[in-house]
């Protein structure tokens, strides 16, 4: 019975962590799929989203709104600002670099990330911020012997909704099918009359907004301070790489694998918890260098 309880704890922890991982990496993998860019600035968007949420939640709480309104306000503000920043970056930086080598684009998104790091520090100061009001207000729930924050379980629901929404958009709407076509073959899509540039701008906008949304949703769970973006970019990369860069289903699988690996080690071998994520990534990459769900690419001779 005790063992079973332990197992349940690990599974619930793993699922909740996996949900968070999926939320932080879905924007990254979407942008990679369409633009073929690893957007290091995604970590910056996450940090901006977290700070915006802290501001929004604080402001809403001061005006006497409840937890639901606080979260809604935070998410709306984060998504709006994320979309705006996304358009700005795409227009000023990325659009000029699409024909350049991968390394140069990586430099550029890294530079944008550095700018974001300090911009958040300048705007919101160096000290940690907290936005835990909504998470506290939602309280805790008893699952058998386990007491768990409702907010963390709600994140699982949000992650599933997000996954369904993104998959449905990609598979069943006109724009989504255009996006899928661009992912598959950019030149062919252009010749079939798809406005590839507009699809790319739009995808980057959505990816950026998903980045800030991830930050906003995480804000109530953490101490928001400078430097939270780096860990996220490494984790999100690990997740997307395991699943195969650019595949939504892959991001889900990657999130579950990393989440479970981390939960198992955190409970059974806490001293090697730090290694779990990287070990999972190393094992998957050693077996399938392109990730679990990626299409093999044709070699150019």
């Amino acid at each position: 019975m005790q063992l079973l309880g332990h197992l349940a704890t690990i599974v619930i922890d793993g699922v909740s962590y996996a949900a968070w991982l999926f939320i932080i990496s879905v924007g990254l993998t979407l942008v990679f799929g369409v633009l073929r860019i690893l957007n290091i600035a995604h970590g910056g968007m996450y940090a901006v989203g977290a700070y915006l949420a802290a501001y929004a939640i604080g402001a809403a709480a001061a005006n006497g709104f409840g937890a639901g309104a606080q979260l809604l306000f935070a998410a709306t503000l984060a998504v709006a600002c994320g979309a705006g920043l996304g358009i700005l970056i795409e227009w000023t930086v990325l659009r000029r670099l699409y024909r350049y080598p991968e390394v140069l684009v990586l430099f550029a998104t890294y530079a944008v990330f550095l700018i974001f790091e300090d911009a958040t520090k300048l705007l919101w100061g160096g000290q940690s911020r907290y936005a835990n009001a909504p998470r506290d207000a939602l309280g805790q729930i008893r699952l058998g012997e386990l007491i768990y924050p409702v907010y963390d379980l709600a994140m699982v629901l949000v992650a599933i909704l997000l996954a369904v929404a993104v998959s449905l958009t990609l598979s069943s709407t006109r724009i989504g099918r255009c996006v899928t076509a661009v992912v598959f073959d950019r030149e062919m899509s252009a010749s079939m009359g798809i406005n590839v540039n507009r699809i790319m701008t739009g995808t980057f906008l959505v990816g950026a907004a998903l980045g800030t949304l991830a930050g906003a949703l995480t804000a109530p769970k953490i101490a928001i301070s400078s430097g939270i973006g780096v860990d996220v970019i490494v984790l999100a990369f690990a997740v997307t790489v395991i699943g195969g860069l650019g595949s939504i289903g892959g991001a889900m699988a990657g999130a579950v694998i990393v989440g479970m690996a981390r939960a198992v080690t955190a409970h059974l071998f806490p001293q090697i918890e730090l290694f779990a994520v990287y070990a999972a990534m190393a094992v998957v990459l050693a077996v399938r260098p392109q990730g679990l769900f990626a299409r093999p690419e044709a070699r150019k001779i």
């Binding site: 930086v93 670099l97 350049y100 530079a111 700018i115």
Partner: peptide
């Protein structure tokens, strides 16, 4: 003094865009 990474990032971006 508080915007060191920002200065770095801005210069890096300008170099990548104009003197790759």
């Amino acid at each position: 003094p508080d915007a060191w990474q920002m200065v770095l990032g801005t210069i890096m971006l300008l170099i990548v865009l104009f003197v790759p």
